[in-house]
Design a protein around this nucleic acid. Sequence first.
DNA 1: CTCCAAACTTGGAATGATTCTAAAGTATTT
DNA 2: AAATACTTTAGAATCATTCCAAGTTTGGAG
Lengths: 170, 170
Amino acid sequence: MTGHATTQSQPTTSYEAAAAQREARFLEALQAAGLRLTAQRRAICHYLARTDAHPTAQQIYEALKPQFPSLSLTTVYNTLDVLVRLGLVYALGGAGDRAVHYETNTEPHINLACLVCHRVIDLPMPEVGAWRSRVAEASGFKILGARLVYYGVCPECQRQNPADDNPPSE
Amino acid sequence: MTGHATTQSQPTTSYEAAAAQREARFLEALQAAGLRLTAQRRAICHYLARTDAHPTAQQIYEALKPQFPSLSLTTVYNTLDVLVRLGLVYALGGAGDRAVHYETNTEPHINLACLVCHRVIDLPMPEVGAWRSRVAEASGFKILGARLVYYGVCPECQRQNPADDNPPSE
DNA sequence: CTCCAAACTTGGAATGATTCTAAAGTATTT
DNA sequence: AAATACTTTAGAATCATTCCAAGTTTGGAG
């Protein structure tokens, strides 16, 4: 069950192929942890595997609600919590709003948060992987995760508001 | 006014000397920005210049309240906001509690947050400075700050709780 | 020195993300 | 089918942070 997801329905694009694979990894990990694969958990994993935005719990809830009217926000929080503890999803704050954003990109990278539009994007950065062990050694911490966020103003928002030198902070 | 703070009252320790210098820098920056040096702002700058903890607004408020009974929490937030906008203080979240922690260490470094005791410590890391411009170039962002946080369990908490493999997350 | 307008501070109310709780629902085992 | 262990759910409770309206202080003009 660790191979490629090639026996499923033929994926239309390589993006969808990767997404399906990621989703499968989530579900397997949940099972391996002895947790049940409920419809709610499946839906949330399905959603997370297919976004490269960095949604908040609210956003996930609102996206899923139409097809899943009984879903409760608490369940979204609970499920995200489980996924974070399993290390499948990272939680990051500080995009200028007050909410926690979740991401599934576990490749070494940093986040760029726009303080104006509150979007977060990823920037691949392979060296990040090497830092982790250096930090652990130097500090004695048991490292469970990292949150490497640069914040500022994204190119689009710079264009729309060239003069503004004082964007809101945190 | 840019030289050493040697003409002030003779500092007892080099730590106090550095703190006084940092405090002076804060006050000058506030003035330079056309803001008033009120007693409240002075008190908050004084406090911030002398801590290497990463206090929350609440903690600053409680520390200052005894000597300053009229101080309000709102003022603490307002002042911190000003200092953050001026780039003198950084705001960082995600120490496992729900609060924003403030720090004055503007040297290139990363933060280590303990998810168990919610303390944050600094780890100097000179390379961090070089990353900033690389990130700006690669992304087109106007970079206003960074928040490089590794989170995990600090040595002390590991000792007290060796078996716990599931510390609270975010 | 006095008065004004702008800049600040204050307490309390409002917001809003997250967490807690108790009750009801579902799967799994016996 | 009954019992047990997980899960989900709605709504209440928390709590950091923000908002607001009113009172204070400050620096400068007269």
